[in-house]
Write a protein that binds this DNA or RNA. Structure first.
Lengths: 211, 211
DNA sequence: TCAGACATGTAAGTCGTTACATGATTCA
DNA sequence: TGAATCATGTAACGACTTACATGTCTGA
């Protein structure tokens, strides 16, 4: 049996929303998950094939009204079952490589000045990211009230629902999206806090006057 | 020319401390960088070969006094130069895949109850990790005062230095190590904060009474 | 009509893990 | 003596990116 990794279930997860093409999936990830996920065609198309081979999806070539022609993939009951199973499994917490920490560790006691300057740069990056995320948050938040997506943010265009249900779906989706942005903001802020602590300690080591 | 990735420079960075074997490097990473880096023999030995081929390191087979025999690798001037260059380059900030966020996004509006339970589990994991890191912090911190490593924490055993210089080296290394633990703690706390916010919002959505 | 977006795919290569193979040395 | 650990490696596989190839459709 083929190996089922995170990409496998990520794609299956999108198909559980509604039937999609590989192209749709790529767009969806790029537009709405760009901060914490990415995927390439080199993964998508072969994985879709394997999903069909595994009986987790079916394919309908060429279909689509009004739109250009796309190869749509639809999740099967078996696929849905496998997805539900994976969704409820605890998060895999294996190491997240952290280049900043690696450089700190490797160079920290050899060249403090350079390390400090590196941390300063890092803080700059994180500060910028935080600002960017705050803007995105503010642009998205109104949809929570209105139930209508702002301008270009129509990543989830659900099957047409009647007015009230449609608005509710938009609100739910918006809340999820805001939560993910919020996570990015908190992460950036934690890093900024760390940078400040680290710079301060490296500039004035607590053992400075010890022999 | 062979590709030079992070693993390449990670290994080179260790060699810049003192000559080491592949086995030493593996141990060092496992013991002191385990929270934010990992490396396997399948990477180490081939990379060491490539470092030698690139002129960044030399090898001395069999050497070692009192110890078992090991193949030691020593960084060259050229290697040191390349390392310095890499060390001063800004941190690569490309996406960090985040399984929690992926699952939130995929399942959030389909099955809120399951998502909440997933977040609760995640919070549990992060709380545990935070506790573990706090313990490690407390165990390591005394070395900042004493200039002597606690019990089994002798990852950096520098070339023998005279008393005062030796203590100073230990203090510097300890500070770096504490900073990296601190980063792990801040990261875990940011995640815990997010979990609380997320659960609260998912349980009581701000749009609950809207039509 | 033709540039640009839409849409689908493959090939080659890097990166990393796991499992396996091999042998030396230590010490209970 | 034999189990554990020290020590060095390779092979196979999976995950992911990049670059390429190919063709369609839309609108200025």
């Amino acid at each position: 049996m083929t190996k089922k990794g995170k990409t496998w279930f990520a794609i299956l997860g999108f198909l559980s929303w509604k039937p999609m093409s590989g192209y749709d999936i790529k767009n969806l990830v790029d537009i709405s998950l760009s901060y914490f996920w990415s995927i390439s065609y080199g993964q998508i198309y072969p994985t879709l094939k394997r999903l069909v081979a595994a009986g987790y999806a079916t394919t309908e070539a060429g279909r689509s009204i009004g739109d250009r022609k796309r190869n749509l993939f639809r999740i099967t009951n078996e696929g849905q079952k496998a997805l539900d199973d994976w969704m409820s499994k605890p998060i895999d917490l294996s190491i997240q490589r952290d280049e900043m920490q690696l450089k700190l560790f490797l160079g920290g006691q050899r060249d403090t000045a350079q390390t400090i300057s590196l941390i300063r740069d890092f803080k700059g990056q994180q500060t910028q990211r935080r600002a960017q995320l705050l803007i995105e948050y503010d642009e998205t938040a109104p949809a929570l009230e209105s139930g209508e997506f702002a301008d270009d943010i129509q990543w989830l265009e659900p099957e047409r629902l009647s007015g009230a249900r449609q608005k509710q779906a938009v609100r739910e989706q918006t809340l999820i999206f805001l939560l993910s942005i919020r996570q990015g903001i908190l992460k950036a802020e934690a890093r900024i806090t760390w940078c400040d602590e680290a710079i301060s300690l490296l500039e004035n080591p607590p053992y400075a006057n010890k022999s």
